[in-house]
Amino acid sequence: MISVQLEDFNLGDEYQQLSDDSETGAIATFVGRVRGSESGSGIDALYLEHYPAMTQKSLEQIVELAKQRWNLLQVRLIHRFGKLEAGAQIVFVGVSSSHRSDAFAACEFIMDYLKTSAPFWKKSISDAGETWVDAKESDQDRASRWD
């Protein structure tokens, strides 16, 4: 299941949904949050924009790639948009599998591809003003290791 939403998510609820299958032997999760600083500068909030149809298709493709590479039972991907204050949850990736190696790898893969391939645009908001956030080369390097 994939959701792009304004509202926050509950980790317990998301974990429970991933736990429903009796074949589940492993669940790997990742939660991304808004940091209060970046490169030594304070951040009050991030503002995330996206184009819904384009974003949904991109996230579906990322999840499908993961399902093709690993034996997965369930995948849950949530990405928030709008204005998110420092400390707020931005993204949830949850993967269930029969075995931990598949769950760990798929969760990391989805997050790496999400950072580099999903069409979200981020603006950093602070006392110093607003700045669009560019993609990091380190994120590209991490995603390229899966090729």
Rank of each mutant, 00 (worst) to 15 (best):
R145I: 02
L11R: 05
H79A: 10
I27Q: 01
R35I: 03
Q140P: 03
K115R: 06
W70C: 01
D147E: 11
G129C: 13
K57E: 12
A28R: 02
L72D: 12
E60N: 10
Q17K: 11
L18I: 01
L46E: 06
L48V: 02
V34G: 04
Y15S: 02
Q74I: 00
P52W: 01
K115I: 00
R100V: 09
A135G: 15
L114C: 01
L114P: 03
E130A: 13
V31M: 11
W132R: 15
Y113G: 00
G87K: 10
W70V: 05
E14Y: 00
K123P: 01
Y47V: 05
Y47F: 11
K57N: 12
D8P: 05
G87M: 11
R80F: 10
G12P: 00
L73P: 04
Q5Y: 09
L6V: 07
G40Y: 09
E137H: 13
Q56T: 07
G36W: 02
Y113Q: 09
L59Y: 00
K67Q: 12
S41V: 13
I125R: 07
W146V: 01
A103Y: 00
E108K: 05
S97K: 08
E7D: 15
A105E: 12
L72K: 06
F92A: 06
K122M: 10
M54G: 06
Y51R: 02
D13R: 07
E130D: 13
G94N: 08
Y51T: 05
S96P: 08
I27T: 05
F9E: 11
V75I: 11
A66S: 08
L114I: 04
Q140W: 09
E14K: 03
V31C: 15
A53W: 04
Q89M: 14
S144M: 08
Y51L: 01
E137A: 14
S19M: 01
I43A: 14
S97G: 05
F104Y: 09
